[in-house]
Structure formats: C-alpha cells, structure tokens
C-alpha cells in the first residue's frame, strides 16, 4: 500500500516537474497510438460498412472472422509483424523493425478489427427501411452510405475509443516490434514493464498512472464530441 502511495506521489512529481523523459515518452505513446487508431478508423469503418451493406455468400463467416479479430492477441500480432519485417524477412526492404513505424503498423493491425466489428454492428443496427427511404429521396449510393455513417456516429465514436484504448494500453506487440529503445521507441507501457523489471516500482506505478490520465483525457475529448451529437 505504501508503495502505491509512493507511486502516486512520484507520478505527480514527474508530471509537475515536466520531467523531459517522461514527457517525451507520453507524447510518443499518444502519437503512435493516435496514428494507429486513425489508420484503423479508415480501414475499419470502410470495410465494416461495406460488409454491413452488401449481401454475399459467406457473409456470416466473414463477420465471425472480424469479430474474432476484435480479440486479436497483441503478442501474436507482434510476433507475425516482427517475422515479416525482419531485415531478412519478406518485407525487410522497408527497414522498419525497431522503429515507431513498426509499432504503428502493429497497433493499427490490432485496432482495425475492433473498429471494423463495432462499425459493422452499428450500421447493421440501423433500421433497414432507412436505406430505402434515403434512396427514394433521390440520394446516390455514396450519399446514402455517408448518411448511414453519420447516423451511427454514436457507436462509431465508441469504436474509436475502443480501438484507441486497445492500442495505448498494449505492450506485447510494442516491445517486440519497437524494441523499447530509449528516447526513440519507448512508450508508457514498455517503459512500465522495464521499470518493473528493474524493481523501480514507484516509477512503474507513476508511469501507469500517467497512462491512465492520458487515456482518460483522450476519452474525455471523444465523449464530449460523441455526446454533443447525441443532444441534437
């Protein structure tokens, strides 16, 4: 218990003093996970919507695969990404192993099925007659899709939060493909693992608290946007 209090005190010390290393680690976490979420949003929403709106044989199988992907274990993603981008691996020419780019790739792979699954479900959840209504008002197919996406903003923003929450707190893939290199690919989660290993529990707890604060602030912003839509 005393240790946790020490950790909380340490967290505030680090935050108030704007400790440059902690600040850069925090900023890097935000950049990497933010970028990964952004990418996952593009693929997740577009593919999720496409699957939701079209009928094809094997659709249930595809949906089952996407839903399974929502629980993709980060270490497994990390392992496969590592093997693919090893410099002597099939994508080795990219030279991105042990860089923040590799972390973005891995995190985007983790977040995409989450965003995809939630957007698929939310589009499917709209009343089926809505589509016909929109089309009968003379909208083109693209316009119809756009209206549907706007209609499901609420769950879609929930998808963003779930995706971001999934990757900012992820450690297995980040440590494998990023390497936890000081000042370069060290993020809040990998630094927490390292400090725990070193037995610096107070710093580890402090980093954990900063991670929670960061996740809270991002979600606060997103929830603000989400609930504004809702009041309309």
């Amino acid at each position: 218990m005393e240790l946790i209090i020490q950790g909380i005190i340490k967290a505030f010390e680090l935050l108030i003093s704007f400790d440059p290393e902690v600040m850069s680690i925090t900023w890097l976490s935000l950049k990497i996970s933010g970028t990964a979420t952004f990418i996952s949003l593009f693929f997740g929403v577009s593919i999720g919507t496409a699957v939701a709106l079209t009928n094809f044989p094997g659709k249930r199988l595809v949906i089952s695969i996407i839903n399974t992907g929502m629980g993709l274990p980060p270490v497994v993603v990390g392992l496969f990404v590592t093997i693919l981008i090893w410099r002597n691996g099939p994508l080795g020419f990219l030279e991105i192993l042990y860089t923040p780019y590799a972390m973005i790739v891995a995190q985007a792979i983790i977040a995409t099925p989450i965003v995809m699954g939630i957007s698929l479900a939310s589009i499917q959840n709209l009343p089926p007659n809505l589509r016909l209504q929109i089309l009968s008002l003379g909208a083109s197919r693209m316009q119809m899709v756009w209206v549907l996406i706007k209609e499901s903003k609420l769950p879609l923003l929930a998808a963003v939060m779930a995706g971001f929450g999934g990757v900012i707190s992820e450690v297995g893939a980040s440590i494998m493909v990023g390497g936890n290199i000081k000042g370069y690919s060290r993020v809040l989660t990998t630094a927490t693992v390292m400090e725990t290993g070193k037995g610096n529990f107070d710093i580890a707890i402090a980093l954990g608290i900063i991670l929670l604060i960061l996740a809270f602030l991002v979600n606060l912003l997103l929830t603000h946007v989400q609930q504004r839509q809702h009041l309309r």
Partner: peptide, 20 residues
C-alpha cells in the same frame, strides 16, 4: 457545432500524423 468539432478532431489527428 458538431461539424466544427468533427473538423477540429480530424485536423488534430492529421497534425499528429504529420508530426509523427
């Protein structure tokens, strides 16, 4: 207002990507 928020959010995200 809601559109403005959405634009702000997109711009922030884009800046983060570019900065990255």
């Amino acid at each position: 207002k809601s559109t403005k928020w959405l634009i702000t959010l997109t711009v922030v995200a884009a800046l983060v990507v570019l900065g990255a």
